[in-house]
Amino acid sequence: MRKTDLAKYDAKKLMNKMTVPGTEFGKAVVTIDKREQRRLDQAAGLVPFATKLNAELVAQLHALAKEQGSDVGTVVTTLLKKALAA
């Protein structure tokens, strides 16, 4: 990489940092990068678990989450705990 290309790359990185979504005039919203979020999740004992579900079931999960005012992960966790306890 040439010196001028490196300078252009650094300038683009700086411009992207200045236009971060979620920032408003006079207010700065703290955003956590993916690495930090992964570290926090691991410290909390959370493990990513991917599975394929029916579209109808996913729609029901989203509707239940919206009704409860929480996220889908919380709804799935509570439903799995209830099912495994039974």
Results as ranks from 00 to 15, higher is better:
Met1Gln: 04
Met1Tyr: 02
Met1Pro: 04
Arg2Phe: 02
Arg2Ser: 15
Lys3Tyr: 04
Lys3Phe: 03
Lys3Leu: 07
Thr4Pro: 00
Asp5Met: 05
Leu6Val: 05
Leu6Arg: 13
Leu6Ala: 12
Ala7Trp: 00
Tyr9Ile: 10
Ala11Leu: 12
Lys12Cys: 04
Lys13Ile: 06
Leu14Asn: 05
Met15Val: 02
Asn16Ser: 06
Asn16Met: 09
Asn16His: 01
Lys17Ile: 01
Thr19Gly: 00
Thr19Val: 05
Phe25Met: 04
Phe25Lys: 09
Gly26Val: 06
Gly26Thr: 05
Gly26Ile: 06
Gly26Asn: 05
Lys27Thr: 10
Val29Ser: 13
Val30Ala: 07
Ile32Leu: 15
Ile32Gln: 05
Lys34Ile: 04
Gln37Arg: 10
Gln37Trp: 09
Gln37Pro: 00
Gln37Gly: 03
Gln37Met: 13
Arg39Phe: 01
Ala43Leu: 14
Ala43His: 07
Ala44Pro: 00
Ala44Asn: 10
Gly45His: 03
Val47Arg: 13
Val47Glu: 13
Pro48His: 08
Phe49Gln: 10
Phe49Asp: 08
Phe49Trp: 12
Ala50Leu: 11
Ala50Ile: 07
Ala50Tyr: 11
Lys52Pro: 00
Lys52Asp: 09
Asn54Leu: 07
Asn54Thr: 09
Leu57Trp: 03
Leu57Glu: 08
Gln60Thr: 05
Gln60Lys: 14
Leu61Ala: 08
Leu61Thr: 01
Ala63Asp: 14
Ala65Asp: 03
Ala65Lys: 01
Lys66Phe: 00
Glu67Ser: 10
Gln68Glu: 15
Gln68Phe: 02
Gln68Ile: 01
Gln68Lys: 15
Gly69Phe: 06
Asp71Lys: 07
Asp71Met: 02
Val72Gln: 06
Thr74Ala: 10
Val75Ile: 14
Val75Asp: 02
Thr78Gly: 01
Leu79Asn: 02
Leu80Cys: 15
Leu80Arg: 09
Lys82Arg: 13
Lys82Tyr: 04
Ala83Val: 01
Leu84His: 06
Leu84Gln: 09
Leu84Asp: 02
Ala85His: 04
Ala86Asp: 13
Ala86Trp: 02
